[in-house]
Simulated assay, not measured.
Amino acid sequence: MNRQRKDNAMIVRSLVALVAVLLAVPMLFADAVAQPKPKISATLRIDWIPGSHHIGPLLAVERGYYAEEGLDLAVKPGKGSGATVQAVAAGSDLFGFADAGVMAIAASKGAPLIMVANTTPRGPNGAITLGPKLTSPKELEGKTLGMVPGEASQAAVSALMAKYQIPPTAYRVISVEAASKVPALLTGKVDVIPGFRFGDFLRAYAQNKNTKITLFSDWGLNILGNGYFVTTGTLAEKPEMVKSFLRATMRGWKEAMADPKAGVASLMKAYPETNREFAELGLPMVFEHMQSEATKGKPLGWMADEDWRVTLEVMKGAGLEGTSPPAKFYRNVIE
């Protein structure tokens, strides 16, 4: 009888222990699930003071999309595409957003860089004028053009003139400082300035509503605009992190397209000194450049070999070295 009691007591103790273990398992599992994944701290260095073509990442930061992907991302202003390219190549910033042609020139000279998405495949560069909009490149003959020495637009103008067989003697070029480029047009010092639609054009338009722009892409010369890039080492060693960055970035852009007011609000919140009118006018323009003829029907950010071929050919006039194929300069990581 005593033995039976002992056996029963042992069985009860075993059952109690088993129940305790079973109850503890879900709690341990819940604790494991509840533990947040460690976030990777990273910076996205953009090309300039934040504006309408930088809104996607800013909205993604505000809504926590990078955090959901395990990234603690900070968007940092830049001082031109060239400086941004150098910063990423040197490892000072993990991600960069800059002119595709400028990045390609650096990569052709040995910088370990590769573009992983481009949100302005329809080139935003064009000829900016006051008064009637230019309808043909031939109308540039006899005009005075104001250009900043070494700017990306300079190579585009040279390529355009060559394409339409307009000799250098048919027009005049005046060198201007970056800060005086738009004023030179507005004051009549020059007849034409090349520049981005949501950059120099908007700066001029905000001051004179008679400002017009004709895109070089409308004249058959589509040069890629800004895109996101990393070092080749980052892409090779951390491809999933790059994909995570792009998922969050494109999510931000898609939501900005669905709700432009929220997009502009995110820019104003992050950088209150921004000109709101400038941003509100520019954002719809940015959307119009998110697909080129060659990328229509493809995911946002996807790049076409054809667009890269044209861009690289033009950039030869701006210092691009070698004859490497487009595949050296970009990789479609967008899923």
Rank of each mutant, 00 (worst) to 15 (best):
K79Y: 14
D93E: 15
P38E: 15
D307A: 05
E313D: 15
L235H: 02
A87W: 04
W253D: 07
L283A: 00
L134Q: 11
V264Q: 13
G150L: 07
L185H: 07
A179I: 01
V148Y: 08
E273F: 13
E321F: 12
V192Y: 06
P239H: 01
L224A: 14
E313M: 12
I174W: 09
S266V: 09
M161I: 09
K189I: 03
Y205Q: 04
G80R: 01
A156C: 10
M315P: 04
P149H: 09
A24C: 01
G195C: 05
A34E: 00
K163A: 14
S324A: 15
P132M: 06
E280N: 08
R251I: 08
A258L: 14
K328W: 11
G123V: 12
R3F: 13
E306R: 10
G252V: 06
V16K: 08
L44Q: 07
K79A: 14
K143A: 04
M1S: 15
L221R: 01
L71G: 12
Y228Q: 03
A24P: 04
A279Y: 11
E139G: 10
F278D: 11
P239E: 00
L281V: 02
V242E: 14
E280L: 06
P149F: 05
S324N: 14
A248C: 07
G301F: 03
P272T: 05
A159D: 08
E141G: 02
L71W: 11
T119Y: 06
P112G: 09
H289A: 10
G301N: 02
A104E: 09
V230N: 09
G146Y: 03
T84S: 13
W219S: 09
G263H: 00
S158K: 15
I11Y: 12
V286P: 07
V264R: 12
E306V: 02
R197S: 13
N226Y: 10
Q207N: 05
T119E: 11
V148L: 06
A87R: 10
P132Q: 03
T119S: 01
M161C: 11
K243C: 02
E255H: 03
A32M: 01
V190D: 00
N125V: 11
D307V: 01
T214H: 12
I334K: 06
S158Y: 13
M27K: 00
V21A: 15
G82R: 04
P137Q: 10
G56M: 06
S52C: 14
W302N: 05
L221S: 08
P194I: 12
D99R: 06
A265H: 12
G317W: 13
T214V: 11
V190T: 07
G123L: 13
L215F: 12
G195R: 06
F278T: 05
F201W: 12
P272W: 00
G70T: 06
S266I: 09
Q165S: 15
L18D: 07
V192M: 04
A83C: 04
D259M: 03
G51W: 04
I114L: 06
D307G: 00
L145N: 01
A20E: 10
A179F: 02
F329C: 02
